[in-house]
Design a protein around this nucleic acid. Sequence first.
DNA 1: GGGCATCGATACCCTCCAGGTATCGATCCG
DNA 2: CGGATCGATACCTGGAGGGTATCGATGCCC
Lengths: 283, 283
Amino acid sequence: METRELRYFVAVAEELHFGRAAQRLGIAQPPLSRAIRQLERRLGAALLDRTSRTVTLTEAGSVLLTEGRAALDAVEAAERRTRRAALPPAGRPGLVLVTKASASRELLAELLDAYAAEPGAAAVEVLLCGPAEQERLLREGRADVALLHRPYDSTAGFHTEELGTEGQVVVLPAGHPLTVRPHVHMADITGLPGLPLPRWPAPDGSYPPGPGPQVRDHAQLLQLVALGRACAVSPESCRDRLHGDLAAVPVLDAPKVTTVIAWPPHSRSRAVADLVRTATRLR
Amino acid sequence: METRELRYFVAVAEELHFGRAAQRLGIAQPPLSRAIRQLERRLGAALLDRTSRTVTLTEAGSVLLTEGRAALDAVEAAERRTRRAALPPAGRPGLVLVTKASASRELLAELLDAYAAEPGAAAVEVLLCGPAEQERLLREGRADVALLHRPYDSTAGFHTEELGTEGQVVVLPAGHPLTVRPHVHMADITGLPGLPLPRWPAPDGSYPPGPGPQVRDHAQLLQLVALGRACAVSPESCRDRLHGDLAAVPVLDAPKVTTVIAWPPHSRSRAVADLVRTATRLR
DNA sequence: GGGCATCGATACCCTCCAGGTATCGATCCG
DNA sequence: CGGATCGATACCTGGAGGGTATCGATGCCC
């Protein structure tokens, strides 16, 4: 199976429409139809049920969609990492680390300092991204190593080492009645009048239905809290970055957040290994 | 990047010889040279240093070798799982489970029975393999789920659930002086005169140097122990399968062995999810 | 119910590139 | 120095991939 065929199939399977898929791929519709049919012949499997009005995935087709996406990610990662390895060493990032823009700032600073002090340390480029994007960036080869936060992020398919665990706090507008309490429970903060918990986007970018404002990142979220439009449950390390308009109260029964360092399991890079070793020593 | 190009590059990188690689790929040498050169142009990266006598990998080349192998595995897995999903449902294995031929027989039997009793259970094909082969079979899509044994097997890149932990025993020829002891320590059994620990093959099939007989599977190993040519440290559950010529003594300080069930992280199969759920309930 | 719009399949043509053969040039060895 | 080895180059050919034009089936709407 060639990656071209996979790309074509994934496009059709996602659009469920040959015309749109062809447009997205920048080719005409007939060659696309032919390519899919040929793929089906070679696999000996019907991938799509087509009537002249609708296209639907068969069981085999939906298997190929998920497996094919994973395979295309792997090919893309191979290409990207190779390209980077070939850049002139001067100034090239030896290592790209990705983490959520809003988390683990203390830990990250410590880690970067400690690693930079190692003999033979590579230049580390830090990539900051929105929530739940780290996984994709790591899978696609845009990054070599990530700081993830369980249970928010899944560590699916990576090697990981735990770096630390912390409780969570609820972030509230300064002056809110609850801020005088030494601690609260989840039951105290779900359904606070006028302060709903926000909604985060799903991996596909869509928002789940329900009350609560839609947010894309932590800064947005804190802004909304300061405006008295939402409250938020966050790892307690975020307290360092709260300004005067905001207050935080520990939530006793919120799930603990574990920060882990994650990297692709087949990584052979010495720089990644060194960074991970440094990280585990920090604890 | 097309999988054809990747396959070509991996062949050359493994052989470090264009002629042999071309032969292995079933094509002539000139098109292979051209394909590699074109790949290098497109990536903007030198992958191989060639003189007219020797071929060596550049740094970028060795990155592409490991990343490319992973990508090719993913493509192969996609193809294989799709093909299987398209087989006529009658008699088709809904699920392929792989485990070492020698381990977890009790647990496996329990698991299969419990899963078969579930409503909507798929037919499970059990694949038995040599040590350390499960990973490859899972990555290549020949299996959907595996029983692995930490720390012997790496769980690199899979989702896992722990199923149980057990201590280890040393397996000795019946009548050996140590067999009267209620337990021993590792120090008691390393360097036993005439009973060296065996050598297992590395992932590439080669054996590490050193004393001790070379073994490929557990049956071979037990045979050698019975013949008085080796001793073996194994999970204690293997005691059930020891016949009269063999005796087992607990090793107090041997690492505990954890049996885990593992599956590819992007798996969307209901059958895999059901099986895993059944397995975690068994504990 | 008939005309129309939509959408995938088919027919046909053309271009480009993967693959083959022949040969060259460089390097190592005896 | 001559021969063997090995990758690169030159050149040719066939087929696969892509494009345009068009067909045939299906759902929709007046």
